[in-house]
Amino acid sequence: MGAAAIPFIIFTVFWGAVGGVAPFFVPKGPNRGIIQVLLALTGVCCWLFWLCCYVAQMNPLIGPQLERDTFLILAKQWGKPIQNLTDIP
């Protein structure tokens, strides 16, 4: 349990690039400053949002509670069908 390095690096680099690097390449013009701030804020907000979601699921304390039918369908779909049950329609 824990974080996988690759997704973490990918997302951090991606949003880092949007928020930290892209602002330097905004073409000159009257709105340059505005666009820079927008990019930086977008990067921060989106990265934070993704991060919270990722970290919150890193160490699950509870697991999903599935109904029996859902469970059986899942097992079938994922190639591990449950054989020893006879009362499945």
Binding site: Y54, G63, P64, L66, E67, F71
Partner: peptide, 19 residues
């Protein structure tokens, strides 16, 4: 039905992006 215990059913790393 069944509640999946993360210890046995969770692959160890979270879903890459989102819930």
């Amino acid at each position: 039905g069944k509640t999946l215990d993360p210890f046995y059913y969770y692959k160890g790393t979270p879903y890459i992006m989102g819930v």
